[in-house]
Structures are given as structure tokens and as C-alpha cells.
Simulated scan of single mutants.
Amino acid sequence: MTPPTALRQAEEIYRRMAFDTFAQDLKMGLNLGFCRTFAVPEIARVLTATGPDDPAHPGPRQGDRRVDVSVTPEADALWAATRDLLAGRVPGVLGPLAGSAADSLLDEELRRALGVGRPAMPVRAATHTALRLRAATGRVRRRIRGSHRPAGMSMVQ
């Protein structure tokens, strides 16, 4: 197999995974990663001033230095808006629980920086179980629909 063919096949596998099988998972992961920027006061101020959809928004430039993270009114407003957005996507009576479930996806350092309390054990357990079920159903669905390999590509090259 020539390198250009291997590269095209790798790109096809990535596209299938990113835009089909794992599209919602990747989107949620990117959104949670973006939420980490809310804890950086300078970024939170810019985001609340320009709106989180502004394509010119900055990202944290950590490099070798420690980035200052702290509770700010801007970070609080951004996280509250994110929780409301998530609650709007969860159907029916589970909607009000979405904010607490979202809180349980944050690590301890980020919860402290955003001023978010640790969710109750039943909420953390339910969120963990929901994620495990989502992963299991995704594996079953992939087995039913087939492989991510492009046609003609064997397992060992």
C-alpha cells in the first residue's frame, strides 16, 4: 500500500468516527474542554464581553507558566449559561438534573475555580452510569453497523 493510500484511508476512518459514530461524544468533549477556559479570569471577561461564539476569542496560553484560575462573576455567568444549555437538551423531567450532571463532569480543581459545589453522590453515580451505558450502546451499535475501516483495508498492513 502506498503512503498516499494509507493516508487517505486514515483520513476516512477519522471522518467516519468524528462525524458519525462519535460525533456527539467529540462535541461534548470539546465543549467541556472549552469550559476550562471559563476559570481563567481574563478569558472569562473577554467571553462575557464579546459572547462565547466570537471566533476571535482567546484560548488559555499555559505553556510553562501557571495560569491564574479563580471564581469570577463572568465565569459564574458562563457556567450558568452552559448548564442552562445542557438542561435544554435533556428531555422531559430529567432536564432540571442536567446542570448537576454537568457539574459532576468537572474535575475538583475546575469545580473550585468555577465556584461549583461537588454534586451529591447519587448524581455523580447516575452520571457515571449514564456515561458507561452510552459507551456500551455505542460499542454495540458499531458492531451492528460494521467497522470503521474503508472497503479493501485489512486489519494488518
Results as ranks from 00 to 15, higher is better:
residue 19 F to Y: 10
residue 106 L to C: 08
residue 64 D to T: 12
residue 147 S to G: 13
residue 98 A to H: 04
residue 89 R to A: 12
residue 69 V to D: 01
residue 51 G to F: 00
residue 12 E to K: 07
residue 39 A to I: 05
residue 68 D to N: 11
residue 36 R to E: 14
residue 112 R to T: 13
residue 18 A to V: 06
residue 10 A to I: 03
residue 94 L to H: 08
residue 76 D to Q: 15
residue 143 R to I: 05
residue 146 G to R: 05
residue 56 A to Y: 01
residue 50 T to I: 00
residue 141 R to S: 12
residue 104 S to Q: 07
residue 130 A to E: 08
residue 146 G to T: 05
residue 44 A to W: 02
residue 134 R to L: 12
residue 75 A to G: 15
residue 124 R to Y: 01
residue 33 G to F: 06
residue 35 C to S: 14
residue 12 E to C: 02
residue 154 S to F: 03
residue 60 P to E: 13
residue 127 T to I: 00
residue 34 F to M: 14
residue 121 M to G: 10
residue 43 I to N: 09
residue 147 S to D: 15
residue 28 M to T: 15
residue 57 H to E: 01
residue 4 P to T: 04
residue 24 Q to P: 06
residue 104 S to A: 15
residue 26 L to F: 07
residue 94 L to K: 07
residue 155 M to R: 15
residue 105 L to F: 04
residue 134 R to C: 08
residue 35 C to P: 00
residue 64 D to C: 02
residue 111 R to M: 05
residue 44 A to M: 02
residue 72 T to R: 00
residue 119 P to I: 05
residue 63 G to T: 01
residue 109 E to N: 11
residue 148 H to Y: 05
residue 150 P to I: 07
residue 55 P to I: 03
residue 121 M to D: 12
residue 64 D to K: 06
residue 95 G to S: 14
residue 34 F to D: 14
residue 5 T to F: 02
residue 47 L to F: 10
residue 124 R to P: 02
residue 66 R to S: 08
residue 74 E to H: 04
residue 55 P to R: 03
residue 78 L to E: 06
residue 108 E to V: 10
residue 52 P to I: 13
residue 124 R to A: 10
residue 112 R to S: 13
residue 123 V to I: 14
